[in-house]
Design a binder for these strands. Sequence first.
DNA 1: AACCACAACAACCGCAGTCAG
DNA 2: ACTGACTGCGGTTGTTGTGGT
Length: 257
Amino acid sequence: MGRTPCCDKTKVKRGQWSPEEDEILKNYLLKHGTTAGNWITLPHRAGLKRCGKSCRLRWLNYLRPDIKLGNFTQEEDNIICSLYTQLGSRWSVIASKLPGRTDNDVKNHWNTKLKKLLATNANPTRNFDDSKQVFHSSSMVPKEEEEQAAYSPIQFPFPNWESAGVSSHILNNNKSMVQHDQKQFPLPRLSQDYSKISTSREESMSFGSSSVAMHENVDLAWFNTFEGFPIDDEIMGAGLWTHQSVLEDIDFPVTFS
DNA sequence: AACCACAACAACCGCAGTCAG
DNA sequence: ACTGACTGCGGTTGTTGTGGT
């Protein structure tokens, strides 16, 4: 026995919403709210020939008063990319960090723009050239790394890190000390074998304003920024998510390869 | 102008979780 | 504890717009 359909699809209108339908739905929900009754019966109550799920989606994604329309900002892009590396495709959670944005909006934006941007920026074959303090591609890619890349297209926790100038901050502060949360610990030296760093969903995490990747061959690689770290406002404005709870789970100082 | 390819966005579908009866 | 209604979510598809040839 199959699942009971939520509505009779032969009797409901489908496809694009007309301005008139939008107006009816918006007026009804502004007057009665979304909690008076359920979504299934709402179309009938409001006088719409639509599926309840369709009404809900239309309201949540486009008609709500607090919806933020228009292009995504660079800051929002960075937040999405950063959270995607940590959470995967949990669009509703990611959208909750972006006021006014919906999960559908974020998902579409990722699928049409950010995923491609990432594919361009995050070449999984990159290696770090310590002498030149840059990353470059290598034609020699171990099979293990190819498999890792296939598992997760995300190779860096912050896909725009290079264009944002993050690498220079990492590299210029190898010997610095930073202070954070009453603790002192050395900034790590980034592994020269950068290609071994994995940021698969299980292995990556973020804390403070810093994104960190862990790997069996690289105890910890410092990617981005840290409070107390001499970074500029532009990068701070990238809006990387603070995850204090993770910070509390880490014993400092950590070791670096 | 017509056609095609691609991008962007809107909407749908079905599954899984939640909760009340 | 079980069941079904309902909701929320993420994957996918459909539609429209735009730029190139």
